[in-house]
Nucleic acid binder design. Structure first.
Lengths: 153, 153
DNA sequence: GTGCTTGCAAACGTTTTGCAGACTC
DNA sequence: GAGTCTGCAAAACGTTTGCAAGCAC
C-alpha cells in the first residue's frame, strides 16, 4: 500500500518552475543537485505522460551519467512532496507528470490510444461512490480501460 | 495491445463445468490434458480473484509437477477462448476468474481492501462515456482506485 | 564534516519465451 | 504420426535496493 505523502503542496501553492521545487526540496531537508534540476526541467518542459525511461533519456541528453535508478529515486521523492504524480495507463510502465496537470485517462485496449477524460465524466461516479459506499475514488492513478469509438464500431 | 479474442463465448453459452471447457478446447483444435482439467477444476471451485501463483499452488496440490509457466500458458489460452478474464486490482499480480462472474472492483490504496462495485455504480459512467465520446468502457480489466470509507475519514 | 545523494551492480516479482521431449488425438 | 502441450531453464520487464564514493550544505 502506498504511504500517504509526507507533505502535499496545499492548493494555490503549486510550484511553477524547477527553482520553486528545488527551494521546496531544500526546505524539507533535501539537496538541490544537478540531476534533480535537469529532471525537473524535463518534467516542466514535457507534455506529461512520460515514463521513467523517457525522462531518463531526456536527462541523459544533458547529463549522460545520470543513472536510471537516480531518476526513480528522484521521482519518488518528488511524489512524496506532492509535486508530481504517476498513473498506470495499462500494461507497461507508469507515467509521471506534474500534480497540477493531473487528469483521468481513458485507454483503448485495442489500439492503445489515450484520451483525457473530461472532468465531468467522472464526477457522477465519484459522487455515487461517495454517497453509497463512502468510497472516495482517485480517478488519476489508474486509467479507465475500454474501446475507443473507432475500435468499438 | 491485447489481441482480440479468437472466439468469445456468445451470451447464454457460458460453460458450466471443466468438461464443458475441455470440449470447447478440443473443438478449437486443442488437447484435453490433465493439467488443464485440474486448472479448470480450481477455477470453478474458487471464489474468483486468484493469482496465477495461487492457482499454481492449487493445481500442484493435486499434480506437483505442473509448472507455473504451464499455468500461465493455459490461462492465456482460456482467455483467448473467452472462458476466463483477468483483472488488475492494483500493483502486484493479476487475478483470474471465470468470465461469467466478472465484476468491477474498488480498491483502497491505503489499506488494500477490495470492494465489489455494484453494477449500477458504473452504469452512469458507461453511458456518459458512450454518448459523449463513443468510448465503450471495460470496468472489469482494471480496478478503480481510491480510499475506502474507513481510510478516507 | 555531516549526512544526503549518486553510480553501479545486483536483486526483485511477475510474466514470457526457446527448446527438446512427452503426450493427445 | 502430426501436431499440440509440457517441464525446465533462462530471459524479459519495470522497478527497487545495498553499498561505497561523492557532493551540497
Amino acid at each position: 500500500m502506498s504511504k500517504p505523502a509526507a507533505s502535499v503542496a496545499p492548493p494555490g501553492t503549486a510550484p511553477r518552475s524547477a527553482d520553486d521545487v528545488l527551494a521546496l526540496l531544500r526546505a524539507s531537508g533535501g539537496r538541490a543537485t544537478p540531476s534533480r534540476r535537469i529532471l525537473l526541467d524535463a518534467l516542466f518542459e514535457s507534455e506529461g505522460h512520460c515514463t521513467a525511461e523517457e525522462l531518463a533519456a531526456a536527462v541523459q541528453r544533458r547529463a549522460p551519467d545520470v543513472h536510471l535508478s537516480t531518476i526513480y529515486r528522484n521521482l519518488e521523492e518528488l511524489q512524496r512532496l506532492g509535486v508530481i504524480v504517476h498513473s498506470h495507463l495499462g500494461h507497461g510502465p507508469a507515467t509521471y507528470h506534474l500534480a497540477s496537470t493531473a487528469h483521468a485517462h481513458l485507454i483503448c485496449e485495442e489500439c492503445g490510444v489515450t484520451i483525457e477524460a473530461p472532468g465531468e465524466l467522472l464526477r457522477g461516479l465519484a459522487k455515487a461512490a461517495k454517497e453509497k459506499l463512502g468510497f472516495v475514488i482517485d480517478p488519476y492513478h489508474f486509467a479507465i480501460q475500454g474501446r475507443c469509438a473507432r475500435c468499438s464500431s
